[in-house]
Simulated assay, not measured.
Amino acid sequence: MTWLETEGGPFIVVPRSALVHWSGTEGDYDRACEVMDLVGVLALADGAEALVLGDEPLSTAYLPEYRVLVRWCYAESEESVTDIIRVGLLTAEWEEGPELSTNGAVVMFDAAYLGTEVGTLTASTALELGAGRYRVDSASVEPDHLTSFRIHRFVELT
């Protein structure tokens, strides 16, 4: 798994086609920091929507086979994270989240950066979602007292 970090703020998930509209600390970052929920949706200048991963600035990775963002709260090692999440998906108590529309590929990165800096000044992860509408549900996976992950799944709506 490839884990991303922020410099202390939230992650943002923006459609690749709308990256030019994310203004980072020049404007949009403050709006992202106002999201107090686990996830929230912001409107962008061109009518696109961006997903904010609120709460704490946790290390985050994407598991495309499950359409799940994994946020590292605490664990002893990275050794079996994928297996822990796979099992946790079956027993998780999901909290329904906001709906997000996208016209295709989306990119997750540190909300402090300009969208045009993705791939140059800031690391990013592409999320393999097709065009459509998704509900972003959240849950915790805590198989023991030494391990805790927060997960967000993208549920395609028809």
Rank of each mutant, 00 (worst) to 15 (best):
W3K: 04
L4V: 14
E5K: 15
G8T: 03
G8P: 04
P10G: 11
P10I: 02
P15R: 04
R16H: 12
R16D: 12
G24L: 02
G24W: 01
G24F: 02
T25V: 13
T25A: 03
D28T: 14
Y29G: 11
E34A: 12
M36S: 12
V39N: 14
G40W: 09
G40D: 14
L42W: 10
A45G: 10
G47H: 11
A48S: 15
A50W: 06
L51N: 09
V52P: 05
G54P: 06
E56D: 12
L58T: 00
T60A: 06
T60S: 10
L63Y: 05
P64D: 02
Y66C: 03
R67S: 09
V68Y: 02
L69S: 07
R71M: 12
R71H: 13
Y74W: 14
Y74P: 08
E78F: 13
S80H: 13
S80I: 12
S80F: 09
V81G: 15
R86N: 07
L89Y: 04
A92S: 11
E93K: 08
E95L: 08
E99S: 03
L100Q: 01
S101N: 02
T102C: 04
T102W: 00
A105P: 11
F109M: 06
D110R: 02
A112Q: 02
A112T: 03
L114M: 08
G115F: 01
T116M: 05
T116C: 05
V118G: 06
G119K: 08
T120C: 07
T122Y: 09
A123N: 13
S124C: 14
T125K: 08
A126L: 10
L127E: 13
L129Q: 10
A131L: 03
A131H: 04
V136F: 00
D137Y: 02
D137P: 00
S138K: 01
S140Q: 04
V141L: 06
E142D: 09
P143W: 02
D144R: 05
D144G: 06
D144W: 02
H145S: 08
L146G: 06
T147Q: 05
T147M: 03
S148A: 12
S148D: 04
F149N: 13
F149K: 10
R150M: 10
H152C: 12
R153I: 12
R153W: 10
F154H: 12
V155A: 11
E156W: 01
T158R: 03
